[in-house]
Design a protein around this nucleic acid. Structure first.
Ligand SMILES: [Zn+2]
Ligand SMILES: [Zn+2]
Ligand SMILES: [Zn+2]
Ligand SMILES: [Zn+2]
Lengths: 169, 169
DNA sequence: GCCTTGCCTGTTACAGTGTAACGATCGGCG
DNA sequence: CGCCGATCGTTACACTGTAACAGGCAAGGC
């Protein structure tokens, strides 16, 4: 019953989606690993937490920097491998137009594809699911005789919060 | 009356869209430059021709290589600038998921956004326009209070030609 | 216990993508 | 001529992503 709630703040600050969302995602990852016999390792967990706690798309090198400590440096290549795992299982999504990653906000199956609304002003990314868009796409693909495997739908523009801000300012 | 004709071959070979399509695109560019008082320079023209004559998405560095002659090397940065011009005016499109560029096949206005069907087997890219998808997207965006500026819709999968090929082979 | 196997991670090196900055060139205009 | 704007050449650099190889570690068979 949440739909596309957008959380009301849109990431105007580092607080992001909060620890609640993060814990939810981690729990989902643990269930998933349990069920499929996969390893939800410490690196994968920390990578997921970093992505989930940031309120905007993060590059792999940014993630590596956040995971690194003065004595313990995490190389970007390790982050890429963790991100491969997380994206394959739908825990994070890659934003192709930004070369960056965001946490999944919906727990959708592999069949449902998401629409990403990317704000040019504040950099927030909102993930929504629309059955109507799915149907339109499926119809067009069937008509063209094209068998889809993965879908990328990314809209750049201005989110509701930033529109109000500009009008008021 | 062409719609999404797909040309029947889907780029299975270097012949691409043929010189006819290329000339058509160049003519469109010249009209556009004439009307808006822009400069359709030699570099921009040659870049457009290279992209149009290839039957698959080309990277900027590939384009630079094709434009270079033994004594005259074209740097990638120049190609990027030419591509900026061409994409801004809808003559070529950038495929975000491939970091590559394809010629526009439709002459659509800035308002109409395209759907790109990218075949994983043969690498061809088919550009289609669907008013139905546009409407679905607009409705979803309006509902979310999001003001769109540009849209990216890229579907990866298998084109009709390659499906038939695999069944038959 | 010990060895093998598979998976994950660390490390290095490298290829590919994209941009910033500066200077030269060219054409239009007073 | 001198100025100005746009384009282009050149260099240098930052960012993104992958290949290849070595070490660690847990599980399972002997
Ligand atoms: Zn998701
Ligand atoms: Zn915003
Ligand atoms: Zn087009
Ligand atoms: Zn194909």
């Amino acid at each position: 019953m949440d739909g596309h709630d957008t959380c009301g703040h849109h990431g105007h600050g580092p607080a992001a989606h909060g620890p609640a969302r993060t814990a939810e995602l981690v729990a989902r990852a643990e269930r998933l690993a349990q069920d499929l016999g996969l390893q939800f390792t410490a690196l994968r967990r920390r990578t997921l937490e970093v992505v989930a706690e940031e309120g905007r798309p993060l590059g792999a090198y940014d993630i590596a920097e956040r995971l690194s400590a003065p004595g313990k440096r995490v190389a970007a290549v390790s982050v890429y491998r963790a991100l491969d795992f997380l994206t394959e299982h739908g825990l994070v999504h890659r934003i192709a137009s930004r070369n960056a990653f965001v946490p999944c906000e919906h727990g959708h199956g592999a069949g449902e594809s998401a629409v990403f609304l990317i704000c040019r002003s504040c950099g927030s990314v909102d993930e929504t699911i629309s059955a109507e868009i799915e149907r339109s796409l499926d119809r067009t693909l069937a008509q063209a005789g094209f068998k889809p495997a993965s879908r990328i739908v990314e809209i750049e523009g201005e989110c509701g919060t930033c529109q109000g801000r500009q009008e008021a300012g």
